[in-house]
Amino acid sequence: MNTKITRLLGAGALLALALTGCASGSISGGEGKAAAAGSGNSDLRDVTIGLFPSSAVGAIQLGIDKGYFEEEGLNLEVLLGQGSAAQLPSLSSGSLDFMLASPTTPLIATAQGLDLKIVSGYAANRPEIVEDSVSVLVGPGSDIKSARDLEGKTVSINALGSIGEIGIREAVELDGGDPNKVTFVQLGFNEVGAQLESGQIQAGMAGPPFMQQIVADGGSVISDFIQDANLGGAELVIASSGALTRNDPALIESFVSALDKTLAYAEEHQDEVRDLLPSVLGTSPEAAAKTDFIAWSAELDVDALKQFADLMEKHGVTEKRPDVESTVWSK
């Protein structure tokens, strides 16, 4: 397994980068598709997926290692960016074939006239476990105790207009606060702990395994906003370009089939994902061992997507309610 990681901090960098990786399928280190084609996997089709630093990297890498994508004739190459919004231009242009995203990203894109499709589910929230998914965290000794206390505070989310923004706004309102008095800044999950410590932010959105590291360092979760806002049914999805779904539906079906096997295996063998986190994300072994995971499944909950659309309109992320039905791909 190749664990070199290309980190992409913005859309410009992603567009400029040749999307490359190892022939065996792995997290890309930028070694070039020519090298991949000449290394013994010429019968496989090179396919690229954009991820952001999270436990999703471990789950996808496990599927690659198990050969599920090769079984479908695919050589899957992974690139890491700060969030799906930063990777959107490359998906639209065809440089990326697939992208892990909050449903807000493709719903906003289609509302703005871009040609994107949600092709499968990826994960749902576990209501019985707070630390399986993204939450709002604070550092040691913080006087912030609940969502209402975020009024007047600077809170990081991984992308503006994302599930973090609509979910936290809704949680603040449900807790009796004014969501318009929260200042949101964009920050990768892997950066939240350091920014909390430095005081640059007062609270931050993070997910596994970075959440566990913040808690281990004395921080705490103050809002399980995904559950509060009723967004847990389709917390993460896989998106592709509309052009690819029309021009090559067989590729979409092959990818979704491999993803389905990958997520089913990862769900049943979570310790194997934990074992991968130190190498693919640089997580400490101690934090990796304590990491709880979101519920992985390729099944798509369309009703949950409708809740996203409702809140996006309510909190001003889009001028009008996104059309869920036209954004979801069907065979």
Rank of each mutant, 00 (worst) to 15 (best):
A234V: 05
V182Q: 09
N230Q: 11
S257I: 02
R246N: 08
E253T: 00
F210H: 08
S240V: 02
E235T: 02
T183W: 05
S257K: 10
L231W: 00
P209G: 13
L231I: 03
A243Y: 05
S257R: 04
I226C: 02
G204Q: 04
S241C: 11
D248S: 07
E197P: 01
D228S: 12
L259D: 09
K181A: 15
S241Y: 01
G207L: 04
L259Y: 08
I214H: 06
Q227D: 14
G219K: 00
M211D: 10
L196W: 09
L259N: 08
A203L: 08
N190H: 10
S257V: 03
Q213S: 15
D217L: 10
A203P: 04
Q200A: 15
S223A: 14
N230D: 15
G199K: 06
G193E: 09
G204S: 08
V192R: 06
F184T: 03
L231M: 04
E253N: 12
S241H: 09
A250K: 05
V185M: 14
A243N: 11
I252G: 08
T183Q: 12
V182T: 11
A243F: 04
D228A: 05
L244E: 03
V215I: 15
G188W: 06
F210W: 06
I252D: 10
E197W: 00
A250S: 10
A206D: 13
N190Q: 14
E235S: 11
G199C: 09
G193C: 07
S254M: 02
